[in-house]
Design a binder for these strands. Structure first.
Length: 204
DNA sequence: CCCTGATTCGC
DNA sequence: GCGAATCAGG
């Protein structure tokens, strides 16, 4: 793989957006994060901040569970204006657990009513509660120890199970070590992937 | 251990 | 110019 104009462009864009070298490398493919970092330096754009026009506000990538880069969904009284910004980012809204390609079977969402992620087509719910009480208890237990990661903090090795209500600040991802090759930790894998009929509902 | 970016230096 | 190896750090 070589640094074609196109690839360099992608590199520049992602770097400007605050993406990490490894993320960029993954996106580009065929290069390591070292290669990316090396290129970044050679291009002389290691200083990510600055640059007259900020693009995506990489400012504080982590450390906070702010689920709301909300594009200001039309406030009732106050009309538009005040923000000519083009809003360049598709905004990885916290409501959309789409860190990578993940057909996330939505969690069962015990105590809370409806989870309505901003305009997200909800994947088919795993025909709800056919989950053993033990499993549920286990999950509740685990969720107390959740690392409470933000979307940006998720990696291939962290559990991507969403916890809480995306519409509030009380929302995060489990973040515990995920089962090898799975998107979730052991406990969440247990409730996410149900064997076709896990409940001996002899009633039929 | 997981992850960051920075630097070096043989190719 | 390139990027693996290495370094330094969270």
């Amino acid at each position: 793989m070589s640094w074609t104009d196109e690839r360099v462009e992608t590199l520049k864009r992602m770097w400007a957006e605050g993406q990490s070298a490894s993320q960029i490398a993954k996106e580009l493919g065929g290069v390591t994060r070292n290669a990316v970092i090396g290129k970044v330096h050679r291009l002389g754009l290691s200083n990510r901040a600055e640059d007259g026009a900020e693009i995506a506000a990489p400012a504080a990538p982590v450390a906070e569970a702010r689920p709301a880069p909300q594009p200001t969904p039309a406030p009732a009284a106050a009309p538009a204006a005040a923000r000519p910004e083009p809003e360049p980012q598709p905004a990885p809204a916290a409501a959309a657990p789409a860190a990578e390609t993940m057909p996330t079977p939505q969690p069962v969402n015990f105590n809370r009513r409806p989870i309505v992620p901003a305009g997200q087509p909800l994947p088919p719910q795993p025909s709800a509660n056919e989950i053993s009480p033990e499993a549920l208890a286990s999950v509740r237990e685990v969720e107390k120890r959740a690392r409470k990661l933000t979307l940006m903090e998720l990696t291939e090795r962290t559990c991507k199970w969403p916890i809480g209500d995306p519409a509030t600040d009380k929302f995060w991802f489990c973040g515990l070590p995920s089962a090898p090759g799975k998107p979730y930790c052991e406990a969440h894998v247990g409730v996410a992937f149900q064997p076709m009929s896990s409940r001996r509902d002899r009633r039929r």
